[in-house]
Design a protein around this nucleic acid. Structure first.
Length: 150
DNA sequence: GCCAACGTTGGC
DNA sequence: GCCAACGTTGGC
């Protein structure tokens, strides 16, 4: 069992959207490191922090879980989609995703500000300067500590 | 809206 | 293979 954090801009796709849809292909990820985590390391049932970025109060707002095995992101083949990738081929897809399923909404947002102020989380990738990864692993110890803040 | 940090692209 | 230019992310 691995633990993860995924970012989403609530203006584009929020935790409430995931709650409404119950389940969602985590499409549009166009970063190789993030792709590799989904393709190689995620397992059905892995627990996931849902993080809101680019908003009034960036932070962890809920829990999700990995709900499928990896498969090709269909948006890469759709010329009308903003994530269309003309260099990707159907017989050798470049972008791989998994489905995410809603688990629950936290009682309160655990803000980035608060996480940055925790010395226990000094090594957590999310709080390190310049971090831009939209899919990242979370140590079990960090996961438990963060949930304990709720 | 600003801008620092980072990843990707492409000329050489 | 280097690296400058460019585009994107995302906090503030």
């Amino acid at each position: 069992m691995n633990h993860w954090l995924i970012k989403s801009e609530p203006n584009a796709f929020s935790l409430d959207d995931l709650k409404r849809n119950k389940r969602e292909p985590w499409d549009g990820v166009r970063n190789y490191q993030a792709r590799n985590f989904m393709r190689d390391d995620m397992r059905v049932g892995d627990k996931v922090f849902f993080y809101h970025s680019n908003c009034a109060e960036p932070g962890i707002v809920g829990l999700a879980k990995v709900a499928s095995k990896p498969y090709p992101d269909p948006t890469q083949f759709d010329p009308d989609d903003s994530h269309f990738d003309p260099k990707s081929r159907r017989d050798n897809p470049r972008w791989i995703l998994v489905d995410m399923a809603y688990v629950r909404t936290l009682k309160r947002t655990i803000s980035l500000r608060e996480l940055k102020d925790c010395p226990e989380l000094a090594d957590f990738a999310l709080v390190r300067k310049g971090n831009r990864l939209s899919v990242m692993p979370v140590d079990k110890a960090d996961w438990d500590f963060i949930l304990g803040l709720e």
